[in-house]
């Protein structure tokens, strides 16, 4: 251990704020990027799955009724 006590470790002889800011920002950005990438991947997979399921259910649904041609009386007046 390069420091005598825990408080000396935090203070780093006055350089503490600089050192800890760097490590903090680094940790937040790196972990944030990893979590964000991983969540984005899950979200893309989930939305693909939903789309496939929709396609399957619309394919397997009974075919639409054929169009009907009913005679419509149109007044000529």
């Amino acid at each position: 251990m390069a420091f005598d006590s825990f408080s000396a470790f935090i203070a780093m002889e006055g350089h503490g704020p600089y050192v800890w800011t760097c490590y903090g920002v680094f940790a937040v950005l790196l972990v944030g990027l990893m979590i964000w990438s991983s969540r984005h991947h899950q979200a893309v997979m989930a939305s693909c799955k939903r789309r496939y399921q929709q396609q399957e259910s619309s394919n397997s649904a009974r075919p639409k009724q054929a169009a009907t041609f009913a005679r419509v009386e149109v007044s000529q007046e």
Binding site: M12, E13, V19
Partner: peptide, 27 residues
């Protein structure tokens, strides 16, 4: 990082601020 932060010796010229090197150089 833990080694660099807590166990590596202090730099004789820059003091403890040099510990930033352990993230500055890798990035």
């Amino acid at each position: 990082l833990v080694w660099g932060l807590a166990f590596a010796p202090k730099d004789y010229l820059q003091g403890n601020s040099y510990r930033i090197i352990f993230i500055h150089v890798p990035t």
